[in-house]
């Protein structure tokens, strides 16, 4: 139950953040690409949240503290490079995680097998952009590096155990996941002529984070916008 909520909230919240690019992306082609990724994630969120309860109720009627997503995915879009940094960190993690879940024998094996193809594309999209921005102009290099640096401290949370997900049959091994993630991200960052951030990946403050329902300040604003329509017009439909 809590694992479905954790994975479902990751997908839902990141989907909403990416959806915020609609009408604002640097070029039309990229706007469609980001919207496509957002829709893939929304599809995953619907399946996962339905496993945890009523999808609409969970998405639109929960308070901030009841959300179990990673703090990484709720971070504001920033500039395009900042969004791409968030995409790189998350999609590499999600790709490795879903690959392991799909190969395992747990309750998420089926949906992970379907989602892993979508996520492979999200990862490729992020990697392609990190390479081009990092190895592009002086300005794009600077922005890409600053995105990677700013979000680095949120990446440690991805490797904290999740209740119901880290069982032996699920196929998830957090340590292998983390070393695989670090190797993959390091490889892309170095090929893009960028520098892997050196700061801590999880703070010394250990009161918990997104998975425990503790979120960063911008998240409240985000869910207010996400839930506003449903709360103003309960049960409205198109």
């Amino acid at each position: 139950m809590s694992a479905a909520l954790a994975l479902g909230d990751d997908a839902l919240v990141l989907s909403h953040r990416l959806g915020e690019w609609a009408g604002h992306a640097p070029v039309l082609e990229e706007e469609v690409a980001l919207a496509n990724i957002a829709l893939d994630l929304l599809g995953q969120a619907r399946v996962l949240l339905s496993l945890a309860g009523d999808e609409d109720e969970l998405a639109y009627l929960r308070e901030e503290r009841a959300f179990r997503n990673l703090q990484l995915v709720e971070q504001p879009n920033g500039d395009f490079a900042h969004t791409i940094a968030r995409q790189l960190y998350f999609s590499v993690y999600q790709h490795l995680l879903y690959g392991r879940l799909a190969a395992g024998d747990g309750e998420f094996a089926g949906l992970a097998a379907k989602a892993v193809k979508e996520v492979a594309y999200h990862r490729d999209h992020a990697e392609q952009w990190v390479l081009r921005l990092g190895d592009g102009t002086e300005e794009s290099h600077r922005r890409m590096q600053s995105g990677l640096d700013a979000l680095w401290r949120f990446t440690g949370e991805m490797f904290q155990p999740v209740e119901g997900l880290d069982s032996p049959e699920s196929g998830v091994d957090r340590q292998a996941l983390e070393s695989g993630w670090l190797a993959a991200v390091t490889d892309v960052v170095e090929r893009a002529t960028l520098t892997l951030p050196t700061g801590p990946r999880s703070g010394g403050w250990a009161a918990g984070a997104g998975r425990q329902g503790l979120h960063t300040e911008p998240f409240g604003r985000m869910i207010a916008e996400m839930q506003h329509l449903h709360r103003s017009h309960p049960g409205a439909s198109w």
Binding site: V27, L28, E29, E30, V32, A33, N36, D124, H125, Q128
Partner: peptide, 20 residues
């Protein structure tokens, strides 16, 4: 037709725009 910085990105944009 579409805009893209290079051929690889053009392929990906084409995938998103014309085969979704």
């Amino acid at each position: 037709s579409l805009h893209a910085p290079d051929a690889e990105m053009a392929l990906r944009n084409a995938r998103d725009l014309y085969t979704r």
